[in-house]
Amino acid sequence: MSEQFQTNSVEETVALGKRLAGRFAIGDCIAMVGDLGSGKTAFVRGLAVGLGIVDERMVSSPTYVLVQEYVGRIRLYHVDLYRLPAAEDELDNLGLDEMLSDGIVVIEWADRAENALPKPYWRIAIKPTGQASRQFTLERVG
């Protein structure tokens, strides 16, 4: 079963992340799948705000550092697999298990390692439908 959401601007994407934050709990893994510029980081910014991260400006793209950690009401780990050529083998090295033991993990470019994600996990697929409009599909996998 999946749910769909439509946003029409970056601001609406941030708001959607904020609105859905309450659905996730410690130990949840959220796989974000969507092309360059589809709004993955913007969604995570909303998610962070919804989880009580005080300074939303802490949230930026983790492409370079691979993992960012934000502490709010709940700890949020923000992972990015864009620079990882063999991402499936690297999830262990990034410490995915440890992260899941005390926080929520959201992974950008998760399609690069989807077979290695511990089930069940949440999957959020983003499809650009126009200049700024995006269709989000949320589902529980496994």
Binding site: L36, S60, T63
Partner: peptide, 18 residues
């Protein structure tokens, strides 16, 4: 101030890839 999404160098890398 700081970037709220991509770092400048990251944007250069991603645009180069495009």
């Amino acid at each position: 101030g700081a970037t709220i999404d991509d770092a400048a160098g990251e944007a250069f890398d991603k645009v180069a890839a495009i």
